[in-house]
Computed example of a mutant assay.
Amino acid sequence: MSTPKVPWFPGASCHITARGNHRNDIFKDGEDFQYYLTLIEEALKYFEYDEYEIICYCLMDNHVHILVKTKDKAPGQFIGRVNAMYAKYFNKKYNYIGHLFQDRYHPEFIKSDEQMLEASRYIHLNPIRANMVERPEEYQWSSYGMYIGKKKEKLITTKEVLSYFQKINKRELYKNFVESAIRNKASL
């Protein structure tokens, strides 16, 4: 029996989550995290005519969050390619047998500007919620440092999310927006 198709519409933005099977770790060292990012970069080139854009991401030990904007094709082919190639790499490297990922992937479609901002903040605060770091820019496997100008932008496109803020100091305003949830622990 085949898995039902995920509903999708052209131009949709989608918060994709992919979790390790049985919540097991899918990244065991820095090389694994880096390889997954390399696969994202390769998939962006492979599907360049489909014009996928990565809005933001956070790779955690046992799951990934990727906010992707689509144009003419559903995100399934993109994330499917990345996850399938990563699973082959992981299985070979660690002599692992069986499914690496729990399911195909979980999509949450973005329906408003507010939801886009909240999804971005949620993704960037994942390492804080997991008590891995004190400040989100300390986490190496997230796009947050690029959003606040601490790292050179690579793989991602910040223009849509940052367009919600004033032209002057938009990176600082985004940082304040994200980190206001840390100060108000209830919204974590």
Rank of each mutant, 00 (worst) to 15 (best):
N169E: 06
K71Q: 04
R81Y: 01
I168M: 15
C56S: 14
D50P: 10
K111N: 03
A87K: 02
M116V: 00
K88C: 02
V82A: 07
P107R: 14
I66C: 15
T157A: 06
K154P: 05
R81T: 13
M132D: 10
K152V: 12
K92E: 11
Y147V: 00
H99A: 14
H99Y: 14
A43F: 00
Y147T: 00
D113Y: 09
E172T: 12
N95P: 15
C58E: 02
E153P: 10
Y139S: 04
S163V: 03
K170E: 07
Y89E: 07
A43W: 03
H63Y: 13
H99Q: 11
K150M: 00
I97W: 07
K92R: 14
H65S: 11
M60L: 09
H65C: 13
Y89I: 13
F165Y: 14
M85Y: 02
K88Y: 13
K151L: 01
R171G: 00
D72A: 10
T158R: 12
Y52E: 08
E172H: 02
G76Y: 06
Y52Q: 07
S120F: 08
E42V: 14
M146G: 01
L125I: 15
I168E: 15
I79N: 12
M132P: 02
L155I: 15
M60I: 09
K88D: 04
D103Y: 10
K151A: 00
A130Q: 10
N95S: 15
V82G: 15
A43D: 13
A87N: 11
L125H: 15
E53P: 00
Y89W: 15
F78W: 04
I123V: 09
S112C: 12
Y89P: 05
F101Y: 09
Q166V: 02
N91G: 04
L44I: 10
F78S: 02
Y164N: 03
Q77I: 13
A87D: 09
N126K: 13
E51R: 13
T157M: 11
F90K: 04
F109Y: 06
A130F: 03
E114Y: 10
K170M: 12
D103G: 13
G145M: 01
E108H: 12
H63Q: 04
I66R: 09
P75E: 10
I79G: 08
Y147S: 01
N126E: 11
K151R: 05
I97V: 13
A84S: 12
F101H: 07
P107S: 14
S143N: 04
T157S: 06
H63L: 08
Y139L: 07
S143E: 01
L162V: 02
P127D: 05
